[in-house]
Design a protein around this nucleic acid. Structure first.
Lengths: 111, 111
DNA sequence: AGCTTATATTCCTTGACACGTATATACGCG
DNA sequence: CGCGTATATACGTGTCAAGGAATATAAGCT
């Protein structure tokens, strides 16, 4: 149960790696497929995948010579947990705005 | 309307800066308060705040000599937007599990 | 205007990271 | 077992970001 650590955030700091996660979000991929899709060299791709793996963001399963990488959704959920308090503040602000608008609307409808 | 860019993710990669965001999430702070709270030196704190500002993650308003920093919740919401598709997959997985459990439960209750 | 407080910036050194090239490991197959 | 495919690692190099110390800017105060 890998938790979110510095490595996780560092891994996300690189745009290539975020692109890789976006690809893997759609479906699990072998290394070669990611190379084809994103156009990075194979060694670069493998190195980035290693960083993502050590960050707990992706998982590998070996299938013959291929290594199939997929997103670790649980880790993403933990990232989300860090973001959640901020989102809550944001939603509170939206709610306050919505209430404000509703009040005007209710007054118009005479509700 | 600053959007999420590489700078945003890079800013989040640093644990000190995430700590600062956690402090600012509770309430807006002047630089000195952050220095006191987290124990970084003043120049370091200012430099990190600059990075956060240029990343669109915090806003400043000047109040006499003090500069009051606060989290830019809108930017956080945009970060959340990137994470959202992953969260959705995660929730679908939880729902599938829940449905599975509900089915067993319903059979037990004869619903 | 001088002094103090509050914050920002500069310079310098150091360490981490990304990329390319070359090479190593692993697996399957004839 | 030798060969091809698929992936990982090692090495050398250039770039960039972080921290400390010193200094600059800015605003209030007497």
């Amino acid at each position: 149960m890998a938790s979110v650590t510095d490595a996780t955030w560092t891994a996300l700091a690189d745009p290539h790696r975020r692109a890789m996660l976006d690809v893997l979000r759609v479906r699990a991929c072998a290394v070669g497929e990611i190379v084809d899709e994103l156009g990075f060299t194979q060694p670069t791709t493998s190195k980035h995948l290693r960083v993502l793996r050590e960050a707990g963001l992706v998982r590998v399963r070996t299938h013959a010579q291929r290594r199939i990488y997929s997103v670790d959704l649980e880790q993403m959920a933990e990232l989300d947990a860090w973001l959640a308090p901020f989102r809550q503040l944001w939603n509170e602000r939206l709610d306050a705005l919505g209430e404000h608008l509703d009040r005007s609307e209710d007054e118009a409808k005479g509700k």
